[in-house]
Design a protein around this nucleic acid. Structure first.
Lengths: 363, 363
DNA sequence: ATGAAAGCGCTAACAC
DNA sequence: GTGTTAGCGCTTTCAT
């Protein structure tokens, strides 16, 4: 005779229909109508007498009743859920943005659905649509690239609230929250110029991406204002990855005249670039100055400590989330705007006056 | 006479009831019943003739119809959504875990609700309950601490699928996926021992947290096996933060005899410890060897490159997610198990034989 | 202060 | 292969 095994027992637990105490159960046991119970749960001001309220609350507790928010959402046509589509949740910069979003979204009574697009534009749109079908009340997106706004047409048709973060799609006429990339980049380049650098190279991000192009423009603008056409700026297009940064840097180090300073458009590429410099056996800042976009917690303990542009990632997330929550709670909608936060240049030891000695590329 | 401003226009757009093409509209326009349409949408094998299918698909496209998943979920009593509760989504380690989870969850047709507990145990439980009220099909949690399992009682009452990641609550009898902390830690310590170190200090994580305690035990075990009671291991309790790592390291550097090697229980504390060592003006590994739990992408380009234990964070996330998806798709449920993945020691330049010179703490 | 009744938009027996 | 019917568990007029 087979006895009941532990496994069988566990199976039974799991197969059992989900614990399903409904409002009806509470209504029956209290003799109070669903209407009243609903009001009590949703804390409608003086909707029920003290007595009823107490009685209902007691039974709710006894029964272990939890409202089914899916049912409530269906009726209410609002889910109190916000969608979040990121390009790469692994990047610590975006991690902080997400944390900022999560914090205000949750403290405002919303939940977050998260998805990673892996910087794939088509996936990005797909994910927005998926979230919309899950009836999110709004969507926050860090757009991967910069297609025309047409690709977002399907999303806009659903008339949702949309807020871009970190980057934006031109012509979309929706809110966007990001750093003033042009300004930050220009300031960084000016710092290098003020140290005496002329031969400054830039390792740029994904071309056509607005945020990336703004950084490039800022760099070029600073250089042009100072030197006009007397210097030909060198710009390498990376792809915001460690490998991309490494390769770009390697190319720069193979130039007949190695630049005296590099400015790198994001954190991941900076790691790659530092690797290439290390592999080439060059000293920072003795042989070459390094300045990176995005500050990381280890920059200050690196040897040498790294000069960087600190983006307020947490603030970006919080600001974008606040914007969405605002749109969700007000009837009158202000015109969409591009909110630009200021980044901050943190000068450390990786930037110094240009070398006076000559360096030729390793053979 | 006031003209209609752009703002007014935008307001109207937003206030307009959400575009709400329902299945009924498709049914009416096609003259096909909702049942059939539902079947077509859900791709039930040969549920409709080619003609009907085409006709329906065409109208769906014309109308821009998207199924309302909230309604479907209510009926189906399953949301195809999985909850994810993390202690600190900002930490790159957890970022990678999340990415792993997201990848398999999504490719299995599920969505992810993300929440950050900020390492607050009470919030952790709250968030699980919130997700349950949103009817998630399962929950993945990286438990912050190690209370008794009782605190999770409310969650278990709802009979959901629960999988722990990175850490677990003893006695809960649910799946857990993490690294073999004891083994990894012991291996790390043995590496230090094999270099000739005796005076090895350990900067531990949050006490009582199983994953953290396992790392401590591994460290002590290695030391004990080699030296028995002839050495008294120094263990400082950090809190897994940069500041905590800094403070612990500072204390170690104030000991009459500074240790010849430090082993640090996580990535954030390692940054802090490196800062303290830098501030003290000590050389790595000349004055002191450093070994950290968690590998970071910049460890190899640091000067010196850092020896570390590489946790398969991405794998942890994927494995945990797969486990949950498995439980969601099979009727027979295997007994819960603690799945331990292997970490990998990566030896680089920050660990070397102990110094032969004496170092006294700075006055 | 409280209730009755009518759905929200979909799915799933159960017919035919 | 297709349709009818009956809800899923709530919220919300509209009464009283």
């Amino acid at each position: 005779m087979k006895s009941v095994s532990l496994n069988d027992f566990i199976n039974r637990l799991h197969i059992m229909k989900k614990n399903t105490v409904t409002m009806n159960d509470v209504a029956e046991k209290t003799g109070v109508s669903k209407t009243t119970i609903s009001r009590i749960i949703n804390q409608i001001p003086n909707a029920a007498s003290k007595d009823t309220t107490e009685k209902v609350l007691k039974v709710i507790d006894e029964l272990g009743y939890y409202p089914n928010q899916v049912a409530a959402s269906l009726k209410r046509t609002t889910t109190r859920t916000i969608g979040l589509v990121m390009g790469d949740i692994e990047n610590p910069f975006y991690g902080l943005v997400i944390k900022g979003v999560e914090e205000v979204v949750r403290s405002s009574g919303y939940s977050l659905i998260l998805a990673n697009s892996n910087y794939d534009m088509a996936a990005e749109i797909e994910l927005c649509m998926l979230m919309l079908s899950k009836q999110v009340d709004a969507i926050l997106v860090a757009p991967s690239g910069s297609s025309s706004c047409n690709q977002y047409a399907a999303v806009f048709e659903r008339q949702t609230h949309l807020v871009f973060m970190d980057n934006y799609i031109p012509g979309c006429n929706v809110d966007a929250v990001m750093v003033n990339n042009f300004k930050a980049s220009k300031e960084a380049c000016n710092h290098l110029i003020s140290l005496g650098h002329r031969e400054i190279s830039f390792i740029a991000g994904t071309p056509k991406k607005i945020s990336s192009d703004d950084r490039t423009r800022g760099f070029l603008s600073a250089l042009n204002e100072k030197y006009g056409s007397s210097v030909t700026p060198v710009v390498k297009n990376g792809d915001y990855t460690v490998a991309g940064g490494y390769n770009c840097m390697k190319q720069l180090l193979e130039m007949p005249e190695i630049p005296t300073a590099v400015f790198i458009a994001n954190n991941l590429m900076t790691v790659g670039a530092l690797g290439a410099i290390k592999d080439a056996g060059l000293r920072i800042p003795g042989d070459i100055s390094v300045l990176g976009f995005d500050d990381m917690n280890w920059y200050s303990i690196n040897q040498p400590s790294l000069t960087a542009i600190d983006q307020p990632a947490f603030e970006i997330g919080k600001t974008a989330a606040r914007r969405v929550v605002m749109r969700l709670s007000h009837q009158k909608q202000p015109a969409p705007e591009i909110i630009q936060l200021d980044a901050r240049l943190i000068v450390r030891d990786s930037t110094a006056p240009p070398r006076s000695h000559r360096i030729t590329p390793k053979s």
